[in-house]
Design a binder for these strands. Structure first.
Length: 288
DNA sequence: CACTTTCTATCCCAACGCGG
DNA sequence: CCGCGTTGGGATAGAAAGTG
């Protein structure tokens, strides 16, 4: 049986539910989490929510190079059991036991969800079918991480899986840096901008929308330098207002989903989340 | 491992606002 | 009107990551 090193100290990382596809088997773990803690995870990991006595075994897939990881068989059941939805996020904390993680679940408004206690008071189910008030049969016995050998087919599916559970609309992720916060614009992938926004050498207005009521119009420029290399930047008063109105900070991640021509629905994944502690105090937890 | 692509930080300059 | 400081935007160098 292979042994896996434990992480340095009770590490935590955050898993954001951005699209409905994130609720299905195949949810990708954050790149930074894979880099830091991927070596601590076996072929299966075990998740447990607060107030719950059962461990949920989740199959983990790795890319060929090992730089990416996905939650597979078991994740969808876990998400369904706790009625996760878009805008939720999950805080994974290493439990000090091999490949076991305590998972705290939060609404988009930073509030922790109400957990079902020992099978009672189970949240409303999204999915019909088997009675899910009790954990599934495979939870009764812990699955040995080495008991399930990965088939060749599964390994070959890694690449297709990596692309299959993204949104059906073009997505662009932008991590805020000190420069983006301090200066007047943020650089985005020029190939994405060229394909989905405007032609090289031109600029246009793009609409950034958090909700139907909260909309900003920013300028997107796709330029070309003297060596004919493309660059693209979102800037202008609209971008400034957007980052200020949404209190963007360094390490926050914005997910731009192209919902219409030059219109992006933006989800903001906070680098810091306020965690309400039992004594009524709160603390900021760094997620990335 | 070399090449390509993307990201990040920084420089430079024009435009603008403000006080004298 | 002039000088100075600030801000916004174009451009680029270099680092980092990805790819064949």
């Amino acid at each position: 049986m292979a042994t896996f090193p434990r992480p340095m100290a009770s590490p935590s990382f955050c898993l954001k539910i951005v699209t409905a596809n994130d609720l299905r088997d195949g949810k990708e773990l954050p790149e930074t989490a894979v880099k830091k803690y991927g070596h601590c995870m076996a072929e299966s990991i075990f998740l447990k929510a607060p107030n719950c006595w059962t461990w949920w075994p989740i199959k983990v897939k790795r890319s060929v190079r090992g730089g990416r990881m996905w939650l597979h068989k078991g994740w969808q059941d876990f998400a369904n059991f706790y009625s996760l939805d878009q805008g939720y996020f999950a805080l994974f904390t290493y439990e000090g036991e091999h490949s076991h993680f305590l998972v705290r679940l939060f609404h988009w408004n930073d509030m922790e969800i109400d957990y079902p206690i020992h099978g009672g008071g189970v949240p409303k189910r999204k999915r019909t079918g088997a009675n899910r008030n009790t954990p599934p049969a495979y939870l009764e016995a812990r699955t040995s991480p080495t008991s399930s050998g990965s088939s060749t087919d599964e390994n070959q599916n890694d690449l297709s899986t990596a692309t299959s559970f993204k949104s059906d609309k073009p997505l662009l992720m932008l991590r805020m840096t000190a420069t983006y916060i301090r200066c007047s614009g943020a650089y985005i992938s020029p190939s994405f901008a060229k394909e989905h926004v405007c032609r090289p050498g031109t600029s246009c207005n793009v609409t950034l929308q958090i909700s139907e009521e909260k909309v900003w119009t920013a300028q997107c420029t796709v330029g070309e330098n003297s060596e004919h290399k493309l660059y693209a930047r979102v800037s202008g008063a609209g971008w400034k207002a957007f980052k200020e109105d949404n209190h963007l900070e360094v390490h926050d991640v914005c997910v731009f989903e192209l919902i219409e021509e030059r219109t992006f629905k933006v989800s903001i994944i906070r680098a810091k989340v306020k965690i309400n502690k039992q004594d009524g105090e709160s603390e900021d937890k760094l997620m990335f």
